[in-house]
Write a protein that binds this DNA or RNA. Structure first.
Length: 254
DNA sequence: ATGGCCTAGCAACTAGGA
């Protein structure tokens, strides 16, 4: 099973930049999108169905903001939107599709970069989401949590750990949350197969950051440790540029 | 350097992003 995740930074803009050709080429079984920034009636979902996908959209209530989705070649047994939080569930941040042998989530963690208030919102999400996932694991043990976590885990995951030591996305509290999350029984599918530096999934639009590979690794495909032995391959795809993020995928033998 | 630059709402600018 090939699972791909992509923060598209506006699905309509990405569709204008050969998103469909990219998806056709990668031919993933499950695709997780974040930041679709649109309601499904604002674009033609038929173009995804023509690629063979069942489509499940979870937009935010606020137009043009956030929004996640899952596309899948197989029809899921069940699809769940939200995580049971009265604010975040209006913001299109969590959607899950349950398949035989695995449940796949597409998650867009809040950004904390727009000030202290947004950072507090981010911590609220981190705390709530951690507890939500662990309640969920009591009944769904085989989880794959894909998405834009908006956090670099370690120094190797950011091009300049020194000058970003006070930047949201690389704060000690956030990195400690990533430690706690992985230690609680999840595997970082990219890092476990690729220990080498200079692998990122997001670059600023400014200052020619992408061409100089001055990036951050903030998008992850995490799997429950019980699925670890099924991991065959993981990659990030920095050459495809429909967004300020790039896509990542993992292949699981399930 | 409290920027740089892009998407989107909505028709001149602002919100949000990391």
């Amino acid at each position: 099973m090939k699972i791909l995740t992509y923060n598209v930074n506006g699905i309509r803009a990405a569709l204008n930049k050969e998103l469909l050709e990219f998806l056709q080429r990668e031919d993933a079984d499950v695709v997780c999108f974040q930041e679709i920034k649109a309601n499904p009636d604002q674009f033609d979902e038929g173009v995804f169905k023509e690629l063979g996908y069942h489509c499940y959209w979870f937009p935010a209530e606020k137009k043009g903001y956030s929004g996640v989705a899952i596309l899948s070649k197989m029809e899921p047994k069940h699809v769940e939107t939200g995580c049971g939080h009265e604010v975040f569930d209006h913001e299109g941040r969590v959607i899950r599709a349950d398949f035989e042998g695995i449940s796949v989530m597409s998650v867009y963690f809040p950004s904390g970069s727009s000030g202290d208030h947004r950072q507090d919102v981010k911590y609220e999400f981190l705390n709530f989401f951690y507890d939500y996932v662990h309640r969920l694991r009591q009944s769904l043990n085989k989880l794959c949590i894909c998405g834009d976590y908006n956090i670099c885990h370690r120094e190797i995951d950011i091009h300049d750990p020194v000058s970003n030591k006070n930047s949201s996305g690389f704060l000690p509290e956030e990195r400690e949350w990533m430690n706690k999350f992985f230690d609680s029984g999840f595997v970082d599918t990219f890092r476990v197969l690729h220990p080498e530096p200079d692998n990122y999934t997001w670059w600023s639009f400014r200052a020619n950051a992408r061409a100089r590979n001055k990036g951050w690794r903030i998008d992850y495909i995490s799997i429950s440790d019980v699925l670890a032995d099924s991991l065959v391959e993981s990659r990030i795809l920095p050459d495809d540029k429909q967004s300020d993020h790039c896509a990542s995928y993992a292949i699981l033998d399930i």
